[in-house]
Amino acid sequence: MTRMLASVTGPQEAEIALAGGADIIDVQNPAEGAQDHAAVIRATAQAIGGRRPVSALAGDLAMPADGLRAAVRAVATAGADMVRLRIVPGEGLANRLDRLAKAASGARLIGVFPAEAAPGLSLLPALRRAGFAGAMLDTRDKASGHLLDHLGLPRLLGFVEDCHANGLEAGLAGSLEPPDVPRLLVLSPDLLGFRGALCGAGDRMGPLDLARVQAIRGLIPPDLPAGGDVDYRLLAARGYAPAATLPDGPVDRVFVEDLVLPVFIGAYARERDAPQAVRFSVSAWVARGGRAAEDMRDVFSYDLITDGIRLLTGSGHVGLVETLAERIAAMVLAHPRVARVMVRVQKLDTGLGTVGVEIERSRAAARTLSPPLVQPLAEAAGFGHTRS
Rank of each mutant, 00 (worst) to 15 (best):
55 S>R: 05
167 G>E: 12
130 A>K: 04
120 G>T: 07
1 M>L: 11
44 T>G: 02
221 P>A: 14
108 R>G: 06
346 Q>K: 14
210 L>I: 06
191 L>M: 13
303 D>E: 09
328 I>D: 09
350 T>K: 03
347 K>W: 14
240 Y>P: 03
254 V>K: 00
387 R>A: 15
47 A>R: 06
361 R>W: 07
72 V>T: 09
136 M>C: 11
80 A>G: 01
98 D>Y: 13
28 Q>F: 11
122 S>G: 04
292 A>R: 06
79 G>T: 05
230 V>L: 11
103 A>N: 05
318 V>H: 14
114 P>R: 14
88 V>C: 13
357 V>I: 13
292 A>G: 15
313 T>R: 03
243 A>Y: 10
31 A>P: 07
80 A>K: 05
90 G>K: 04
49 G>I: 00
97 L>Q: 04
141 D>E: 08
157 L>G: 05
126 A>M: 02
290 G>C: 10
127 L>V: 02
30 P>Q: 10
337 R>F: 12
44 T>V: 01
295 D>A: 12
361 R>E: 12
101 A>N: 09
332 V>R: 02
239 G>N: 09
26 D>V: 13
120 G>D: 05
263 V>Y: 01
89 P>N: 10
379 E>M: 12
159 F>V: 05
310 R>G: 08
303 D>V: 07
26 D>H: 06
368 T>I: 06
251 V>C: 14
374 V>H: 11
134 G>L: 08
360 E>A: 15
15 E>F: 07
78 A>V: 08
315 S>R: 05
